[in-house]
């Protein structure tokens, strides 16, 4: 007898979505091995030329830039999110807890374009930040922040912050406070307790948050497109340009495939590098 009679019904929506997704992926893959016919939306016969073209410095650089951008974003997000998550989990003040939750989670509810435009207002040459710094006399002339990798990273950190805070908070809340008390009683001051107990035990959250931030950033499009303004080229902006300016669908498709493979590879690598740390932290 079937012990879960509704299982089939319940998984069918997910199944439909999965079928659609797989079909789309196959289509992309199919495009990636076809020849480009300039001036036409039709594609030619089988070729591996698209993949070979990616070795050209322009495209290799875009890949490298993207990985670097993702890495920087994940690192800065981690550094900013950790204290927030720590305070969120450890504070006794419910007001502070709500404040941190609101501040760290609201970016999730803003549309990507709205959020990006607000960053343009902040980062522009006549934007909030430059005006403030000029008024304070800290700068003589506006600092270029728009259309730079730094500006893109700042905006992307904002995007990845909520998920990082949530993942770190989950990990931190699972740490038994008695570990820290035991360490304290054994003579460890606050800094030592943090470095030898809290930080290693939160490693699973750090790895999960870091990989997620990395993957999100890799696929980000609107933020690098608008804030980078074409001067910061990432895999996703490149795909957009090739697909929708040059209508070179085959090349855009092959970039997508390699981009996907690359981001999976980097995440797998991260996991592998972090696994001794995670094993050290033990499963809570």
């Amino acid at each position: 007898m079937n012990t879960r009679p509704f299982l089939g019904w319940f998984v069918s929506p997910a199944g439909l979505v999965a079928v659609g997704l797989i079909a789309a992926m196959l289509a992309v893959f199919q495009y990636s091995v076809r020849a480009y016919i300039p001036g036409s939306l039709e594609v030619g016969g089988f070729t591996l030329q698209n993949f070979a073209a990616m070795l050209r410095p322009l495209y290799a650089l875009a890949f490298w830039n993207t990985v670097l951008l993702c890495f920087e974003t994940a690192v800065f997000t981690l550094i900013l999110a950790y204290p927030l998550a720590y305070a969120l989990v450890r504070t006794n003040s419910s007001a502070l807890r709500s404040f941190i939750l609101v501040v760290s989670v609201t970016p999730l509810f803003l549309g990507e374009v709205v959020r990006t435009y607000s960053w343009m207002i902040v980062l522009g040459n006549k934007g909030f930040l430059n005006t403030l710094l000029l008024q304070l006399g800290l700068l003589d002339r506006p600092m270029q922040m728009m259309f730079t990798a730094g500006g893109v990273v700042a905006a992307l950190v904002h995007v990845t912050m909520p998920i990082m805070v949530i993942m770190l908070a989950a990990a931190l809340s699972h740490i038994d406070r008695n570990y820290e008390k035991a360490a304290e009683s054994l003579g460890a001051g606050p800094v030592r307790v943090f470095l030898t107990i809290t930080l290693p035990l939160s490693m699973p959250g750090i790895v999960a948050g870091f990989s997620t931030a990395f993957a999100w950033t890799f696929s980000a499009f609107a933020t690098p497109q608008l804030i980078g303004g074409g001067r910061v080229s990432t895999v996703s902006t490149l795909i957009y340009q090739l697909g929708f300016s040059s209508f070179n669908f085959p090349f855009a498709a092959s970039l997508s495939i390699i981009g996907l493979a690359l981001s999976l590879a980097v995440i797998a690598l991260l996991k592998k590098a972090a696994s001794p740390l995670e094993r050290m932290a033990g499963t809570t």
Binding site: Y179, S185, G187, L201
Partner: peptide, 20 residues
Amino acid sequence: TPAHMREIGIVFQNYALFPH
């Protein structure tokens, strides 16, 4: 005096051995 300077030994109900 903060706990880390009191020189006490403590055994908790759940032992709280550092798992890592």
